[in-house]
């Protein structure tokens, strides 16, 4: 489904959403924007949003599934990032990982609180999986990024990959993962850890 180029797209690309900026939106820029945000710089935050929102929102949507709820969670995540921006410490990890950790936790919290009262909304609304509205260069870079991660995932055993995906994308606890896979309680925990370690080492080698 094609998406309307909303009124914000034009000013956004003028202020730096274009492929050139995204392709140089490397760790240093993210840190600079985050730190400027901590001082109240809303333009820096807009740049930050444009650089990371597709990752944040894509992850949230994958975990939460319901597009309307995912939109809400994504908003909450960015408000949190804004509020907490001065507390990011580059000594302790990358800016992207910090932001995605916030996003993942919020998404997981949402599905767990939702499942306490109601069945998880199983409707996967395909139309919301919009074709990203971006340039060829950006698409190419995205596909390279994704390919690198897929290659790294190939290093995991099938059982490790299954456990990691249920935990990360499914938002299940290791206990629930054990139940879903019908394996002993401690085993899911081990598979998740071993799988992440292998993913980490494999990504490290691919950089």
């Amino acid at each position: 489904m094609s998406r309307m180029a909303g009124p914000d797209r034009t000013p956004a690309s003028l202020t730096g959403r274009g492929s050139a900026v995204v392709s140089v939106a490397r760790a240093d820029s993210l840190i600079d924007w985050l730190q400027a945000s901590g001082r109240g710089d809303q333009d820096a935050f807009a740049s930050l949003y444009d650089a990371v929102s597709s990752r944040v929102h894509g992850l949230v949507l994958r975990v939460v599934r319901n597009p309307a709820q995912a939109d809400e969670v994504t908003q909450e995540v960015f408000l949190d990032i804004w509020r907490q921006s001065a507390r990011f410490d580059p000594q302790r990890g990358s800016a992207l990982s910090w932001m995605l950790t916030i996003a993942h936790r919020r998404a997981v919290d949402r599905v767990r609180s939702a499942q306490a009262t109601t069945e998880r909304d199983s409707a996967w609304v395909a139309k919301n999986q919009d074709t990203p509205h971006d340039s060829t260069a950006e698409r190419a870079e995205r596909s390279l990024d994704a390919q690198r991660v897929r290659n790294a995932l190939d290093a995991l055993t099938d059982t490790q990959r299954g456990a990691v995906e249920l935990a990360y994308f499914g938002g299940y606890t290791h206990t629930e993962v054990a139940g879903l896979l019908d394996i002993p309680l401690g085993t899911a925990k081990t598979r998740i850890r071993d799988g992440l370690i292998r993913l980490r080492d494999s990504l490290g080698g691919a950089r």
């Binding site: 998406r3 929102s53 597709s54 990752r55 944040v56 929102h57 894509g58 992850l59 949507l61 994958r62 995605l100 996003a103 919301n128 999986q129 919009d130 990203p132 509205h133 971006d134 995205r142 990024d145 994704a146 690198r148 991660v149 897929r150 790294a152 995932l153 990691v164 990360y168 994308f169 993913l199 990504l203």
Partner: peptide
């Protein structure tokens, strides 16, 4: 890095 697999605007 897994978020590279699920990007959505």
């Amino acid at each position: 890095a897994l978020a590279d697999l699920t990007r959505a605007e």
